[in-house]
Simulated assay, not measured.
Amino acid sequence: MRMTISGPPGSGTTSLAKYLAQKHELRVISAGEMFRSLAKEREMSLADFGKLAESDAAVDKLIDARQKETAEGEDNIIAEGRLSGWMVSNADLRIWLSASLDCRTKRISSRDSEDETHARAHTEERQECERKRYLGYYNIDINDMSVYDIVLSSERWDVEGLGAIVDAAIATLRS
């Protein structure tokens, strides 16, 4: 089983990936974790590292190429990241999670211990920065859902509810 989980910041992709990985004994390959790790290595905030990535295409392209190569070359994985559904050409199942900006802002604010106003501004800035980069680098419109097999609202369902829906899809694919 090779699946991808994508969605905007704060939509719950990491939570769902971890949940499904544990339940189905899959390995998670997270583009976001790679990005955060590189920012930390360079002692930069995510916002500053995002600006670096905006000015230096090599940052994104390195992360994307590593995730694509690893995910396409292994079985029993979940590739989690904004572009995973577009980049992993041999995925068995592609999932997109959605939630309103208000919902995602509250989650990010709580997770990152920052006030909601700052979290909202940072999230909007990050989304716009990523949208421009992906269009420029790969001609991918991140708002195009046509590559996804399942589009789910993480605002409507918690991780267990999302997991149950995906479990049904996995069971169908495996039968």
Results as ranks from 00 to 15, higher is better:
H122I: 05
R27I: 13
N143E: 11
L46H: 11
E25I: 06
A58E: 09
D64M: 09
T105M: 07
S6E: 02
A169H: 15
A164P: 09
R133C: 12
A65K: 15
A57M: 14
D144M: 09
K132N: 14
K23Q: 01
A79W: 10
E114G: 03
D112S: 10
D75M: 14
Q127K: 13
R42L: 11
H122P: 06
R82Q: 06
S154W: 00
V147A: 12
D112A: 05
Y137V: 12
D60T: 03
D48R: 07
T117I: 07
I78T: 02
H24I: 11
T70M: 14
D56H: 13
K18T: 04
M145P: 13
M34C: 05
M34K: 07
V159A: 01
T4W: 03
K18H: 06
D75W: 10
G163T: 04
E33H: 00
A65Q: 15
K23S: 01
M87G: 07
E33A: 05
A79R: 02
M44P: 08
A171E: 14
Y19P: 04
D56G: 02
E80Y: 00
A71M: 11
D158P: 01
I63W: 02
D92C: 08
L97R: 03
S110I: 02
I77Y: 06
R133Y: 06
I170M: 14
Q67F: 00
T14V: 01
K106R: 12
A164I: 12
R107Y: 08
G12C: 03
L38D: 09
R66C: 01
G161R: 14
N139E: 07
S11G: 07
S84M: 09
D167M: 02
T13M: 02
S84P: 05
D167Y: 07
D56R: 11
G10P: 11
S6P: 06
S98W: 13
S153D: 07
E74A: 11
A47V: 15
K18P: 06
N143F: 10
E130Y: 08
L101W: 10
D60M: 10
K18V: 09
M34V: 01
R156G: 08
M3Q: 04
A21L: 09
V59M: 03
G136A: 14
N139C: 05
G81R: 05
G7L: 08
D48C: 04
C129V: 13
S154F: 03
A91S: 05
T117A: 03
E54G: 13
Y137S: 13
G73V: 10
S110G: 08
M87A: 01
A91G: 03
I63D: 08
L26C: 01
D48S: 06
A71C: 07
G73T: 05
D144E: 00
N76H: 11
R131P: 03
G32A: 09
R42V: 00
L62Q: 13
G85Y: 09
S110M: 04
N90C: 00
W86L: 10
G81A: 00
I63E: 05
N143H: 13
